[in-house]
Design a protein around this nucleic acid. Structure first.
Length: 654
RNA sequence: GCCGGCAUAGCUCAGCUGGUAGAGCGCGUGAUUUGUAAUCACGAUGUCGGGGGUUCGAAUCCCUCUGCCGGCACCA
């Protein structure tokens, strides 16, 4: 063994330390502990870094040996190695295909290939079969650190130009690691399993092929990306596939059709045709927002849809977003020139116009101008997606004109308002991200210091965890983004709060300060829902269409069991409607089973059934969505109960 | 915008290698008066996304446009 000078001390998770020769590998360490651990070991965690069993450790460190029982490292290795195994399978089938990169992602991995022919779904099956073959070969994984030039020459010789480019992008102080699975080779930073047979052959699946730009750059070649998912065992894979099916059932586009909420059609791509049911949800949400904003000290305004390009030139949007704006032209009778207007893509320039009317005093600040602002943006065809990404949408927009000193208070009130609204709409959890000053920006460093600190302090008033995204702020000011988590764990960025030192300048907004001089206000752009369209899409998916009472488009259906009950049904509906409920009668000549099924599928939260007995007793039999039991109660009682239940959260007594 | 796929009745989908369309649900009519997730019978579904071409003949093959789906890029 090596002498004392080249000894290092490794500390284990239980706190014990032992001396090892410098350059010892985790495999050596595992073997020194027990033969069974040596067998089970797959990788190590060394000072927090995921470490290949074959990588030498040169200095004192904390070490933990990982086995397949350690979820994160084992999934990481399985998915990582599958990416290579897939690339190898592809090259074994089609040797001319060029390989590029293949990282691990959530639930699996992808790998991008350059191939003239498109991959077909049948190809995926063939690749999968080949991958299983490779796994069964149990080829050992070996790792070598190569000299940079040698690696470049190697890839040049093998006609793998993408790999050459990748090597050139690796910082000079980092090793070029060459990995071999049997005869197949890839460039990779590792770590890896010890042989391909360690990957569970029945716990992965290739999911889809899609185009993807080389290095994410739309000016560079379009490659073909194959996505795969992988888990530790077959059951976990099955669970995941079931989860996907469940998520598909929540798809708001499907539910939108089934529940008759809205539709889209060719003549207006990306624009929503709201149907009565969907528009009911929209209006309930809008009414709720209007009350919340009004209570929070906002003044609601409405500004024009069609605005002369001059204003967009002044605001800077014409230069930057011209391509994405809907333009209207008009020949005015006595004008020399055609007048060019744009449908507003955002509300802020118009809000500044409202602010600029008359002279504002510091006493007017903060001035909070809110608008349910209907905006249009020409989004790329490929970007459209149901209600989630549309070309015509309505923001719950507002601009707060204030002084620098007021930013913190305004931000704090905003976050508290946003928390209320998210909670009321069913989202308990949300995350906050603070994006700070970018390289290129307007405004002095002092103002940025102040604004960033104000936003940070405002968050800390409410909670102590938030993420910082350095350099990702807008050029005009720092911003906060708010991401909520839905019922199946997906995250959606909805709210935003942005300080703006630029637009007031460009559009010359001023107020008279205490000193009698003109000053520039700061403008705070903020939204909570983002857009009504998208937020409703998120609500539909979050609730899987089973909206809470106050948002449900059809709240109660009163269904007759025999036609002798029809009169009582109509009476009940009238009482429910008088109590403010969205109630309807179902006195069709159908069995109660049929009616219950239809309204359950239609996601009506409450069905009241009326037969002979109920008519006699003045009662109804209540069945709630998703419950099998029923309960017979006096009509007047349930009317009162449901009316209370249907109150929007801000109007409901605590 | 880019890559790939798809487009048949209101919805979900079938229609093999070219011979002018079919099922279930829904809809309409009638019967049934029904007790908590589909009662029975009968009936009608349509410019096979639009345009052009090949062919004696096109839902089917080719071209093109549009839209949708999955990604990528974009998202003030």
């Amino acid at each position: 063994m090596a002498d004392d000078l080249s000894q290092i001390s490794l500390t284990f998770p239980d706190g014990a330390s032992r001396a090892f020769p410098a350059g010892t590998t985790p495999a050596d360490v595992a073997a020194s502990i027990s033969p069974s651990l040596a067998k089970k070991a797959i990788s190590a965690t060394v000072d927090g870094a995921h470490w290949d069993l074959a990588w030498p450790i040169e200095s004192d460190a904390e070490i933990a040996i990982n086995t397949m029982k350690d979820l994160d490292p084992s999934l990481e290795l399985i998915r990582h190695d599958l990416a290579h195994i897939m690339a190898r399978a592809v090259q074994e089938i089609w040797p001319e295909v060029k390989v590029t990169i293949g990282p691990v992602i959530e639930n699996g991995w992808y790998y991008d290939f350059d191939r003239a022919e498109p991959f077909t779904p049948e190809d995926l099956g063939q690749i999968e079969a080949k991958m299983k073959e490779i796994i069964n070969r149990r080829d050992p994984v070996t790792t070598e650190v190569w000299d940079r030039e040698r690696a470049v020459k190697y890839y040049e010789a093998n006609n793998e130009p993408y790999k050459v480019e990748l090597i050139e992008a690796i910082p000079g102080d980092q090793p070029i690691r060459m990995y071999w699975h049997g005869h197949w080779q890839d460039l990779c930073r590792g770590p890896h399993l010890q042989h391909t047979g360690q990957v569970p052959a029945d716990a992965f699946k290739l999911m889809k092929v899609a185009g993807a730009y080389w290095r994410g750059d739309s000016n560079r070649p379009m490659l073909q990306r194959i996505y795969g998912v992988a888990f530790q065992n077959r059951q976990q894979l099955k669970n995941y596939l079931t989860f996907l099916e469940e998520a598909e059932k929540r798809d708001h586009r499907r539910l939108g059709r089934e529940m008759e909420l809205f539709h889209f059609q060719e003549e207006a791509p990306g624009m929503v045709f709201w149907h009565p049911n969907g528009w009911t949800i929209y209006r309930e949400l809008e009414d709720y927002m209007r009350r919340k904003l009004s209570k929070a000290g906002y003044k609601e305004i409405k500004t024009p849809q069609v605005v002369d390009r001059k204003l967009w030139e002044a605001s800077g949007h014409w230069d930057k977003y011209r391509e994405n704006m809907f333009i209207t032209e008009i020949d005015e009778e006595h004008a020399n020139e055609k007048r060019i207007n744009a449908l507003k893509p955002m509300n802020c320039p118009c809000h500044v116009q409202v602010f600029n009317q008359g002279i504002k005093s510091y006493r007017d600040l903060p001035l909070r101008l809110a608008e349910f602002g209907s905006c249009h943006r020409y989004e790329a065809h490929g970007a459209l997606h149901g209600l989630m990404r549309v070309r015509g949408f309505t923001q719950d927009d507002a601009h707060i004109f204030c002084t620098e000193d007021q930013i913190e208070q305004e931000c704090a009130s905003f976050i508290s308002l946003l928390s209320d609204i998210y909670r009321d709409s069913g989202f308990a959890k949300f995350d906050i991200k603070l994006s700070t000053r970018p390289e290129v920006r307007v405004g002095s460093d002092e103002v940025w210091d102040k604004a960033e600190a104000a936003l940070e302090k405002a968050i800390l008033n409410i909670r102590n965890d938030f993420e910082i995204d350095p350099g990702e702020g807008a050029f005009y000011g720092p911003k906060l983004d708010f991401k909520l988590t839905d019922a199946i764990g997906r995250e959606w960025q909805c709210g935003t709060f942005q300080a703006d030192f630029n637009l007031p300048e460009r559009l010359d907004a001023t107020y008279i300060g205490q000193d009698g001089e003109k000053h520039r206000p700061v403008m705070l752009h903020r939204a909570i829902l983002g857009s009504f369209e998208r937020f409703i899409g998120i609500l539909i998916e979050n609730y899987a269409g089973r909206m809470p009472m106050w948002l449900a488009p059809r709240q109660v259906v009163v269904a007759s069991i025999v036609s002798d009950a029809d009169a009582f049904v109509l009476e009940a509906v009238q009482k429910l409607q008088h109590a403010g409920l969205r109630a309807e009668a179902d006195i069709r000549n159908e069995k109660i089973n049929y009616k219950v099924r239809e309204h359950s599928v239609g996601k009506v939260p409450v069905i009241l059934a009326v037969g002979q007995r109920e008519v006699q007793d003045g009662t109804v039999t209540v069945r709630r969505l998703g419950e099998k039991q029923t309960q017979t109660v006096p009509l007047d009682q349930i009317v009162e109960e449901l009316a209370r239940e249907a109150l929007p959260p801000d109007l409901a007594p605590e």
